[in-house]
Design a protein around this nucleic acid. Sequence first.
DNA 1: TCGATTGTCTAGCGGTGCTAGGATCGGGTC
DNA 2: GACCCGATCCTAGCACCGCTAGACAATCGA
Lengths: 192, 192
Amino acid sequence: MSLQERKQRERADRARLIVATARELAEQQGWDAVTTRRLAERIEYSQPVLYSHFRGKREIIGAVALEGAAEMAVALRAATAAADGPRARVVALARAYLEFAERNPAVYDAMFQLDGGLAFAREDTPEPLKDAFAALLESLGEVAGDGVHPGLFTETFWAALHGLATLTRAGRLPPEHTGHRVELLVDRLAVL
Amino acid sequence: MSLQERKQRERADRARLIVATARELAEQQGWDAVTTRRLAERIEYSQPVLYSHFRGKREIIGAVALEGAAEMAVALRAATAAADGPRARVVALARAYLEFAERNPAVYDAMFQLDGGLAFAREDTPEPLKDAFAALLESLGEVAGDGVHPGLFTETFWAALHGLATLTRAGRLPPEHTGHRVELLVDRLAVL
DNA sequence: TCGATTGTCTAGCGGTGCTAGGATCGGGTC
DNA sequence: GACCCGATCCTAGCACCGCTAGACAATCGA
């Protein structure tokens, strides 16, 4: 059995290598540069090997998205844990979210801009995605205000952050006053 | 001279035909289906003709985006003009924005998601884009609140709407409670 | 009527995601 | 030790992409 286990382990290692390489390449040169040929060359296997692990490029993007969601959840919880009081927590959350988007643009795209074939906001949504939303909900639920559903408030706040993140990075919004926009968002949306 | 004028007019007509066809095809089957081959076939010319009008596919996307921006500005002003009072105006504006995004998803993508080679938030930004932002500013500036720069407030509000529009359409947000989210956004962000 | 200019097309380049089918290599069995 | 069989991997190729060089035809001015 040990032989089969070793082979399984090696296969899993190679799957992780593919995902890590795709992510690295995407962060370095953008997702357009992540072609199956280049990816295969970087992992030093031929193209068809990719398809023995993933159905296609979309599924590789999805795998990067899941990895990113798990990391984002950790980053958000770390940021809010270090903050005292509801307002400080929400500010820290918003800043951490935008910082994650800025520092990991390719991963952020995989999560929220590209088609990774993942289900969102449903029962069969993958756990890491649910958990990332839960991390938002933990800090935002407490400032939703009376009579406002915490989930709905979280969705709205998240959408606002997402809009800031994407429009800024796409050059649609000048980056200078991001801090002011975030403060405006927190002070107006959150009930403290 | 009349002959040259006729030729120029015919060229301009064909340019418009290309843009209109690209838009139509994108709305019908998505931007992925808008290939230069299919586009050329639909306008009943060969591919190189496209390149005598536009530098490439990106520039065609940009042309669709400009057309869309002009229409959006009209739609937003029409919606706000029919509303009485600041709150009703902002609600009407937000609804009109989201409705435009929902009814013209391909055009919306050309404007804000895809790369159309256009400059945003700069001096050399094309007039239709500036004007669409101005249409937002006209209704949002009056509810920015004391001490808050109208432009910055408009940017923030716009980002929130953009987040709602894109996340909802990409299936990241369930479409059921869009109305509630919009009201939450208006009631919290706008100073009435 | 002839040459030049303009307009358009055919054909092709290097790239893409993806896959069929053959080669190779290893372990298990006689 | 020889053989077979299954797993693993690669070569080669499909249809498509954006884009362009160069041939060809039509039209204009002289």
